[in-house]
Nucleic acid binder design. Sequence first.
DNA 1: CTCCAATATTTACGTATGTAAAAAAGGGAG
DNA 2: CTCCCTTTTTTACATACGTAAATATTGGAG
Lengths: 345, 345
Amino acid sequence: MTKPRINTMEELSVAIGVSRPTLSRYFQDPTRVKEKTVKRIEAGLAQVEYIPNFFATRLNRKSTGIIGVIIPYLNDLFFTKLLESVEVAAMDAGLTVITQCSHSDPAIEARAAETFMSMNVDGALVAPLGDHSDQAVHQRLKSRLPFVLMDSRPTTMPDVDFVGTNHAQSTGLITEYLCRVGEPPAFLAMPRVNFNALEREAAYISQMKMLGFEPEVLGAEQISEGAHFEEHGEAIMDTEFARGKFTDRSILCVNDRVAIGAIRAAARHGLTPGRAAKGGLRIAGHDDYPLCPYLNPSLTTVAQNTDAIGKKAVSRILEIIRGDVNEGAPQITLFDGSLKLRESA
Amino acid sequence: MTKPRINTMEELSVAIGVSRPTLSRYFQDPTRVKEKTVKRIEAGLAQVEYIPNFFATRLNRKSTGIIGVIIPYLNDLFFTKLLESVEVAAMDAGLTVITQCSHSDPAIEARAAETFMSMNVDGALVAPLGDHSDQAVHQRLKSRLPFVLMDSRPTTMPDVDFVGTNHAQSTGLITEYLCRVGEPPAFLAMPRVNFNALEREAAYISQMKMLGFEPEVLGAEQISEGAHFEEHGEAIMDTEFARGKFTDRSILCVNDRVAIGAIRAAARHGLTPGRAAKGGLRIAGHDDYPLCPYLNPSLTTVAQNTDAIGKKAVSRILEIIRGDVNEGAPQITLFDGSLKLRESA
DNA sequence: CTCCAATATTTACGTATGTAAAAAAGGGAG
DNA sequence: CTCCCTTTTTTACATACGTAAATATTGGAG
């Protein structure tokens, strides 16, 4: 039952009577070995248990075939969706993906970057920590290896390739929709600054002005330190609703998780946001968080094209690896958001 | 500004005038080098950019200091919570964590296991794919390295250490609660069998019988192939509610994501589940999915102690690595669930 | 049977570091 | 100043495989 275990390619070569260099070629690309020999090797492999050593194979190759991915949090379905798209695209390209999570900590992010550099990774794909990533670390990554930023674009890294969403378009789109169909919306922000959040806020303000309305931002003050998105949205709107404010208004939330909190606050005050509902309260979000269709009411939002972002990030990394780089201007790819009309607005 | 880059420890040793073996000892454990020498090395390192090669360092060590973790999906906050707990615990223990996701595919899970074996990982922590993991792969993992299963325990792997939730207790607890406070519940299942789901269903049935009630299971038939949890819960309950059935009943869902779908179906039929609500409909879940408090109504459920599970899984792996193993019986650790009373039941 | 081309083997060296043993250097006590 | 112990250096080999060049083998065509 249990096959004899073979630890090195050397042992394997004597066991099945094929030279080690030939085996080496076989494991890297079987087509580089004559078919008859391939058969013999495979027959031999079926008789024993042998796995080439990961470290030894990577140590002396020009290319490790690994790409490193960093995401900022795990407890957010937006990033897991993005990560899924990246992992699938990378797998299709025959790459090994090593994923690290920053856990909201710049020091952990920096360590992950070090790890990637120490592995001579073929490229790094990073969704940064927004405001407080360590810029020096990113600069070193860029100077050492193909490097593409995803999702959030720090203003301090203007010279790095980026793939993300066109927030001016996406936020403009939903702002315009809300204005067209009902009361001009207020914007529910998050205080801990993040570049996407800032871009969305700016896009909201500019769109409102263009349409001739007065922008109004709330939630910029921190209620409880380290609050999660939902908690923040609920706390801010609970306070407002308790004062009798905003109960008949439109509220555009900086993202869906904040909107989930806002909807919850509404429910606690007996309010049901919706374009068809009485009272005039409407709540909308941004991102198309996977649970949006299942909320009560279901959440109207703008979808980010995470799948396109993940695929493009991988294909761009591959381009850079192959040397197809335009020295000079970085490549910035922004995907449009698409409106998801549901019940809440 | 930009420091000279040094690629090998050899170069570094000539650059700062310390022998390579001393540097090697320093990088593995600075306390094994005299303090004065440490200072000299650190002063030297500050002048240059050098990162020890990850592969070379791991190639010839007895211990790689790496543990491999496999989770079945990314798009589920339960697993990301568990993963977070594992990663933090492992980091605290000074281990490097390599995480791979099976993406619901046994072949990908198998490849991840191969990768771990090829890396001579110190140990593997696996949350299996439930029903359709490749047993042979798990057996090889167990025979090769310290191996602990998390979350779901395949009946085919009775001899492997396991850390998870005591579903008899947790499901019994909420079943008893529902029976005590209102109508005895029906059980909303998922058709694609998973060991946890089966255990919960069995626990529900046994608790109902013990309390003298007739168990009733629904949702065991597949409505749409490959449906997600929420979709399934919504589809099943939508059908039932449309027939006028279960509208005044208690429903215990196999997990929170199914419950989210069930609540959504209720809302679409103008029903509001809740212990305080009229009509008698109540919906409860299992797991304490992070969004439970923010649903409308907020979801009554049983929390799994994911933090304890993650920590224990890591500490158990460390025990095995250190050789503190009881040959013979596997160590099975089950944590109790705790009731989370909210609005929905 | 011979020759040629394709393929495989042999040989030798490279990758960046771990590790062990022997030799040398350093520092403090007497 | 010498002896002894600690620390470092020197030396040498190990890890498991990639890679390149020279040599040997194989198989088919003529």
